[in-house]
Write a protein that binds this DNA or RNA. Structure first.
Lengths: 304, 304
DNA sequence: TTCTATCATAAGTTAAATATTATGACACAT
DNA sequence: ATGTGTCATAATATTTAACTTATGATAGAA
């Protein structure tokens, strides 16, 4: 049995035509071939299968059991090809595609609201969103596992294309009943005494805040390191201290929620969210469209 | 998009190997080819698809969305081929197959009990049994729609191979309380007065009985023509007359049932059931095996 | 019987697929 | 900077699939 090894799709198509007409000559006409061409192809396929596919009785031919199975196989395969071709056609026209995003955890506070409208506009596009820590994002970036990445700061050791698309203001967050809550223009050094809650070292937010305080020669009193922004917010609400967070993490907090933003000098620290992908990577149509959309959306939000 | 038109299974296999290794050189080694051969094949497939299948980043390559879809297609298709090849292998070894039988209605009284054990012995064989009247059987035979046919007498106007495999004794059936029920060696002419129930003209049983009576110059009093053996049995039980039937139709009637067999001279008429198929037809392995089985079974039953 | 439709076979041609060798370009690691 | 691994390209060779023409065999219809 060497069907797969030796046969060609063409032979299967010839077979299918013959099986449909149950007549070599008709099949030949349909395919613009001579009848002997058909005879030969069928003979080949039968040799490859190892069993007769047609039964010849007088001038009429009939499918054998093996022939019926092969016909089913052909129809099945041709169908799969047709499906595939449609998929590809859709991909070409952006009616269909995949968009694999990997974003740093803090982006979870705003990314879904940007992605949502995009998905609605292109319902054929499957978007997968990985929300992981910075280190994992960089690893996936290096392994080229996704189409696009969102980071709070572009990686330095990898060759990438990166583009800021949205402001990322870092603010000082405190409980609403904090002593400084109502003050205006709080001096930076007033924070020196406050117990600080921070993400782990390596966090972009932490590094940016650290740099600001270092520049002003202020030593922070770091009370606790916590593994997620949400944990920090809970801790602040619990009165364990204050922290520097992206304002996006407070998007869902109301005017009367348990947290508030302190009006500290030099804050908000203006950072940006970056759209990143490996240098030299040829983006898919979907990914390019998404980039354009994100940039436009970023500008729109800034103007407001 | 001309994937189906222009590509070959070989190209898909090359693609699959590359997609698996994500490395042209490795794929080339696996297929005992040189690397440029791979490059060319992939280029061809990409042209046929109309989209890149791989993304080249530095020395590493990755599948594009289209590539992933094509890989899925390949695996799918290769799987179908494998299934088909297994099917065919099974057919060759009788582990699998189809057996399409068309039998004349009277055969329904014994055919299932012959077919049953065969099915049990070859559980991979799908048996389909058409129970239809003689005319339909002959039509199907002429159209070569089945593997084998069972008839009470071989057709005369068609070229067929036919072989008797089981005795088919025709007997005179009467109600158990019939006047002649207890008599021995009833003379044929005693039946002349009896009201007779018969199948329609053309029925083999009817023709055989008619011939016997004609030979002895006896004119039958045909009271009623009925369309099935079961209907005739009901009518006999209802006292509407007597009839000539295959003894097989009484197989399930008990010793004390409402019907009995009259011991009439020249009865039972010894006829046979015939296994028939078109002359020159190459029987499938399954059909041949079933023939052998039926003949052996027929001999076994006769000996008893 | 003769004619016609149908498939098989043989010989030879054409065209296409597939391959190789040789070489170049490029990224990455040392 | 150099070397190594990897893919691309060009020129060319080889194989083989696919097709045609010509002819033969056979079955069924006229």
């Amino acid at each position: 049995m060497r069907l797969m090894r030796n046969s060609t799709l063409r032979q299967l198509k010839v077979f299918e035509a013959v099986a449909r007409h149950l007549n070599y000559t008709r099949a030949a006409e349909e395919l613009y071939l001579t009848q002997p061409a058909i005879s030969m192809q069928i003979k080949q396929v039968e040799e490859n299968v190892g069993l007769p596919l047609f039964e010849h009785l007088g001038k009429r031919i009939h499918l054998t059991a093996a022939g019926r199975e092969l016909l089913a196989l052909c129809r099945d395969i041709f169908g799969k090809f047709a499906e595939f071709e449609m998929s590809v056609a859709d991909m070409k026209g952006m009616k269909k595609g995949q968009l694999r995003l990997a974003v740093i955890t803090t982006a979870e506070y705003f990314a879904p609201r940007l992605i949502g409208p995009f998905c609605q506009h292109y319902p054929g596009v499957d978007v997968s969103l990985q929300v992981i820590n910075r280190e994992s994002v960089l690893q996936r970036l290096a392994d080229n596992l996704d189409d696009l990445y969102i980071l709070g700061q572009p990686p330095e050791n990898l060759e990438v294309h990166s583009q800021p698309f949205l402001e990322n203001p870092l603010v000082v967050v405190a409980p609403r009943d904090h002593a400084l809550a109502k003050k205006k223009c709080i001096a930076l050094k007033r924070l020196a005494g406050e117990p600080f809650l921070m993400r782990e070292p390596g966090s972009g937010t932490r590094m940016a805040a650290q740099r600001l305080f270092d520049e002003h020669g202020i030593k922070l009193n770091i009370r606790m390191e916590l593994g997620s922004n949400e944990a920090i917010k809970q801790a602040i609400a619990g009165g364990l201290g204050v922290s520097v967070l992206s304002r996006h993490t407070l998007a869902l907090e109301g005017e009367r929620g348990p947290l508030t933003i302190l009006d500290v000098q030099h804050f908000p620290i203006q950072r940006h969210w970056y759209l990143v992908y490996p240098a030299g990577k040829q983006l898919s149509v979907v990914a390019r469209t998404f980039c354009d959309y994100l940039l436009a959306e970023g500008r729109r939000i800034s103007r407001k």
